[in-house]
């Protein structure tokens, strides 16, 4: 793909991006405490469905991978695996400080402090932890980004796969681990 065609969207892609923006199905990767903020966001107080958002059961069906907590070597492998099972176009949202810089676990030997070294994060939601208002606000931003064709993390991942893979291997030695408990 040339740079030119990469940035230019065809008409059908613009239409498609409109649909994608207003129908955001999420796969939540709830490793940390951040997940506790999702139920209030879903239910009547904030009602994320009014933006066309909703949780989905599997990464195959989802558009957004929402990572709501700190990442260890073990969980990062799973996050990468899940991300790679998602269908294009797909977006990653880092939720809370943990994904940004390791949060309160930043000095643990096992914590992966920066998610965007391993996966293309389209949007971070800062805070420990972010309130539902922050989440709603963030998704509003994400919707706008998608609509404008700016959320292109998935394409970035495709194009710079080697770099991402190098980082992943550097931290994890092995992404698709064979048998990490018994070997």
């Amino acid at each position: 793909m040339t740079t030119n065609s990469k940035d230019m969207r065809k008409t059908w892609e613009k239409i498609a991006d409109y649909f994608r923006a207003h129908s955001i199905w999420m796969k939540w990767y709830c490793t940390g405490c951040g997940a506790i903020e999702m139920p209030p966001t879903m239910t009547s107080r904030f009602d994320m469905e009014q933006l066309g958002m909703g949780p989905m059961a599997t990464p195959r069906q989802a558009d957004v991978l929402l990572i709501t907590g700190y990442l260890s070597a073990k969980t990062l492998r799973r996050v990468i695996y899940s991300y790679e099972q998602m269908q294009d176009p797909k977006y990653v949202v880092g939720f809370g400080s943990c994904t940004l810089n390791g949060g309160i676990y930043f000095d643990s030997y096992a914590t992966m402090t920066r998610l965007d070294h391993y996966l293309p994060v389209d949007l971070y939601i800062a805070g420990c932890m972010p309130r539902p208002e922050a989440i709603m606000n963030a998704f509003d931003t994400l919707i706008k980004m998608i609509e404008k064709g700016e959320a292109k993390g998935w394409r970035h991942y495709q194009e710079n796969h080697d770099w991402y893979r190098k980082n992943q291997l550097h931290s994890l030695k092995e992404v698709y681990v064979k048998d990490e408990f018994h070997e």
């Binding site: 990464p59 681990v177 064979k178």
Partner: peptide, 11 residues
């Protein structure tokens, strides 16, 4: 084998 396994690695 590339199916949704709750992100577990199965061989």
């Amino acid at each position: 084998m590339d199916t949704y396994t709750s992100a577990e690695f199965i061989y």
